[in-house]
């Protein structure tokens, strides 16, 4: 047995954390996400050019080229002569914010309801499961379109709509995990010791369910960003002229054959973020040894 000084490092699987399977994924994922987040973060204070107004003389300049006005554009310009670099940086704000909000909402909602459902069972479980099945059987995209048409499309409404669309998949996982955990004897032990339902849920069930929630929520980030892009593509995203990645793709589709970068570059950005977050989720899943 190792010395007690190093115990912390050899705990859980008896491997130092950096040698565990899944850690490379986690690191690569973190780097990708960090790049995107840094880029978006910087755009809050500074962008190379204005993301909303452009120079019509420099329409559709290719990446790494200089426009007619003599300005160099790292990622080219769009059909209105706006700098793609600035638009990508600023457009990420909405995409990332919506994705994070949605996933946070999903995680909170599904942990809470999943624990209630899995611990109390009975009618609570029946009602929640029924709501889930209704939720799945109706194409929610239509309802989302309706909600946005009524309430307009602020970041929060968008996040709420998307969360409504996606919480079921996490809820099912947390519920089944809660059922399994509730049947373990340590819950009985807590009850024998005198813990009430609230204490059992807070001290025992939730800590055992949080890893599941985290993994499945991170896996949702990808589909959320894609769904947001889809809404933006349909013109239902956050209002113009402020760019989002999804709307940039939709605006560039007319130029796809000749000027690929107008919709290609935001698509690459979405791909990088989705890949990064999925790698994080996958890495955590492997490290925590979950199915």
């Amino acid at each position: 047995m190792k010395t007690t000084k190093n115990d912390r490092r050899y705990r859980n699987g008896h491997l130092p954390w950096y040698r565990k399977k899944g850690v490379p994924r986690l690191i690569v994922g973190c780097i990708l996400v960090l790049i995107v987040v840094l880029m978006v973060g910087v755009s809050l204070f500074w962008t190379p050019h204005s993301p909303v107004s452009g120079n019509l003389a420099d329409r559709l300049v290719a990446p790494f080229h200089t426009g007619k006005s003599g300005t160099f554009y790292l990622l080219g310009t769009d059909p209105l002569g706006r700098d793609m670099t600035s638009r990508i940086m600023a457009g990420g704000q909405v995409s990332v914010l919506v994705a994070l909000l949605t996933v946070a909402l999903c995680a909170l909602l599904s942990t809470f309801l999943g624990v209630l459902s899995g611990y109390y069972r009975g009618w609570v479980d029946s009602v929640l499961s029924m709501i889930c099945e209704i939720n799945i059987s109706i194409p929610l995209f239509l309802i989302v379109i309706m909600i946005i048409a009524i309430f307009g499309s602020s970041v929060f409404v968008l996040a709420l709509c998307l969360a409504l669309n996606e919480w079921v998949s996490v809820f099912r996982q947390t519920r089944s995990k809660a059922i399994v955990q509730s049947n373990y004897e340590y819950v009985t032990a807590a009850r024998v010791m005198g813990a009430n339902n609230r204490k059992i849920i807070i001290h025992h069930l939730i800590p055992n369910i949080v890893p599941t929630t985290m993994v499945f929520s991170t896996l949702l980030v990808g589909s959320t960003i894609i769904a947001e892009s889809g809404l933006a593509y349909l013109g239902l995203g956050v209002s113009k002229p402020f760019p989002t990645w999804g709307r940039m793709i939709s605006e560039g589709q007319a130029y796809m054959n000749t000027e690929w970068w107008v919709s290609g570059i935001p698509a690459i950005c979405i791909a990088i973020l989705v890949l990064g977050v999925n790698l994080i989720g996958d890495g955590l899943r492997i490290i925590w040894r979950m199915e």
């Binding site: 373990y184 004897e185 340590y186 009985t188 032990a189 807590a190 024998v192 010791m193 025992h204 800590p207």
Partner: peptide, 13 residues
């Protein structure tokens, strides 16, 4: 009144 469990695996969180 206390209880000691059969299964030492599932009875500890």
């Amino acid at each position: 009144m206390q209880l000691i469990f059969q299964d030492p695996y599932s009875s500890l969180d």
